[in-house]
Nucleic acid binder design. Structure first.
Lengths: 137, 137
DNA sequence: TAATAAATAGAAACGAGTTCTATATAAGAA
DNA sequence: TTCTTATATAGAACTCGTTTCTATTTATTA
């Protein structure tokens, strides 16, 4: 089962398997879409007696850092997280549909593998794509 | 001259040609890259006795609304604006030196010439590079 | 079961961006 | 030029998503 794989990943990264972490992972497995910290907070608030935003934010960031979640920012200037389905947890980019806002993910880096350009040695890059998804076109 | 065209666009849209608006436009014409409100504020602060963030933000938004500027959001969760180069000649990118802040420009697009990726049809992209310039390395 | 390292809740802080309002100024009219 | 009026401005105060701080609680292991 997929949840077991995620829980194993927690152990591998020395993160405790707390009830709330499990609830967050189950929520992402159930919904299979991008969720904001606020949406997750509401669910946790309903399932437990106590809940706090800092824990939600920290958990989301930790899950992002160990490659379980991916993180994007929508034009509403909020963070959104979703299960990362890329086989490798390495470098990958996202593309946003200009019509429906759906976010696609691809691990293929579109950049030519150049080390130097215009007299500058390239250290890092930020690539943001806009497009139209299959359903909207 | 390009500045005249932009100023005419202000008049067309019934926006006054204030000294600060002119300074902002000149800055974009000079830099030819994405700038944050903060970066613009610093320049305006140096060129005038007074400056305020609300004016910068409102001006950038107005220039964006009448099509003079583009607006994007980078992962640092800040807004960035750049001249809309629709009439401008060639597709080009910028690279910023992480040490001295110098901005390089190159017309060669580093993106693989893909039209579609992950089920999305690519319409537009924004690429910002970071690196080290010749003098700093 | 006890030890301990990590996770939590709650309050407070942070910071980019926005709203409010009185004052200043660009641009057209007299 | 001077006057008039609508727009632009500075500065203070605010918004709100996100982060930091800290005392308490809890999952893990020994």
């Amino acid at each position: 089962m997929f949840l077991d794989i995620l829980l194993a990943k927690l152990r591998t990264n020395k993160l405790k398997q707390t009830p709330k972490r499990k609830a967050i992972l189950k929520l992402f497995l159930d919904k299979r879409c991008f969720l904001s910290p606020e949406e997750i907070f509401v669910v946790i608030k309903n399932g437990f007696k106590k809940a706090s935003f800092p824990s939600i934010y920290r958990n989301l960031d930790e899950l992002y850092k160990i490659g379980i979640l991916l993180k994007v920012q929508k034009p509403d200037r909020r963070l959104y997280y979703a299960l990362c389905t890329a086989e490798d947890t390495g470098h990958h980019h996202h593309i946003v549909c200009v019509k429906c806002g759906k976010i696609g993910e691809f691990s293929e880096c579109l950049l030519l593998n150049k080390k130097k350009v215009g007299g500058f040695k390239i250290l890092d890059h930020f690539l943001q794509l806009e497009g139209i998804c299959n359903e909207c076109s």
